[in-house]
Write a protein that binds this DNA or RNA. Structure first.
Lengths: 211, 211
DNA sequence: TTTTTAACTGTACCTCAGTCCAATACTTTT
DNA sequence: AAAAGTATTGGACTGAGGTACAGTTAAAAA
């Protein structure tokens, strides 16, 4: 197993050495084609205390992840960083001071096409995805179900920015009828105008409403 | 380590056998309390070619995941299936024809309280979350940066459903001035009315616009 | 110093949005 | 059969949204 650590530091942390005795060190991200054979795992160390993952590092992740499995080690892990890194193609994101056993575990997972992410990040991601897939949909449906078929059509057109006249044309009815439907919609949803309608239907699920 | 494969097939795939020689087979999902002791890992195989994860299987995942770690193996992996499975309590989702080493790796991760998901799914989910956290913000800022300070204040108030009169009151200016700002905003953003403004500023980042 | 830009206001005008009162036709429920 | 709900339209009205034209003031840039 071939490990390469990319870090501005002069030498490898003892725990990295302990985890992978045969690991090599590089100060900057090398060209991909200069590495023959490419390392099995490239560990990119993010030294920054507070500042986010730098653009060059991110670019390195993107470039190197084509050939090797890339794992980002952060001294100050941040969720936003992790998301960026993983989206750039990194296969793992962990604390730079992870214990030796964890580092080795990460290596095993990552070389087997797995992905390593901190548990709290996973929880957040799952929450977001759940919310995006179900929460908003549910809210929308709960509201739209209060409306009749025709009112729904009108409402959906209006929240896409259509004027009454445009809605009338697309539904082949009079503008007057559109107004009638809207008045009914406003009553049912207890709102006053199309702006509120748009707000209601695009509203994010607030924390307390989550399942 | 105790493995149970649930699959309609008559017998275990050779690679499953190779990965876990001591694995047992079941045609349908058994009652949880009938299994003493419960298996360490239950592998539920989704045979379907195109159709999504069936409801009974999903129910089985929910029920069995209370006692054992459940991993769903799909012949035709789909993102929606994976999310459903993970949401139902599955601890892993992988291709049914994953190599032996991968299967064993999955077992290790899953028994150690880990979660196993395909890399491409992870990338999509991460991308979604990143977008939710930052993408929208960026788009908003790109647009709002075209406006002057005062125009920004007006725009932000308007997209929250405020009328011109309300904006005027909160900013301590005339309604006429609010209109003037809005006219300027509409020109700069190349839109025609406050509805479009709301659409512009709440617009989701589309796939091609992602970083 | 002249020019530009932002913020602000006025008058007038037009269009669009929304409501009230009213009515017809059709379907479903009671 | 009667009542209720839905879809449809009309006329008249009020108010809000938006534009065109015109102007003042202050600060920043040229």
């Amino acid at each position: 197993m071939n490990h390469l650590f990319i870090t501005p530091a002069a030498r490898l942390q003892p725990r990295w050495q302990a985890a992978f005795p045969q690991a090599t060190l590089a100060a900057v991200a090398p060209e991909t084609d200069r590495l023959t054979p490419p390392p099995d795992i490239i560990w990119i160390v993010c030294e920054g205390e507070q500042q986010p993952l730098s653009a060059p590092l991110l670019e390195a992740v993107t470039r190197l992840s084509a050939e090797s499995a890339v794992v980002v080690l952060a001294n100050a892990p941040q969720q936003a960083d992790a998301l960026q890194a993983l989206q750039a193609g990194a296969r793992g994101y962990a604390h730079a001071l992870s214990p030796v056993a964890t580092l080795q575990q990460i290596a095993t997972v990552v070389t087997n096409a797995g992905i390593w992410v901190p548990a709290d990040l996973m929880a957040q991601v799952m929450g977001h995805t759940w919310q995006a897939l179900n929460g908003e949909q549910r809210l929308r449906h709960a509201l739209l179900d209060k409306l009749t078929e025709r009112e729904r059509e009108v409402a959906l057109a209006v929240v896409q920015g259509a004027s009454n006249k445009q809605v009338a044309r697309t539904l082949n009815i009079t503008e007057r009828t559109v107004k009638a439907h809207l008045t009914s919609i406003f009553h049912k949803l207890e709102i006053t105008d199309r702006m509120q309608l748009m707000l209601k239907l695009t509203e994010k699920v607030s924390a307390k409403e989550r399942i």
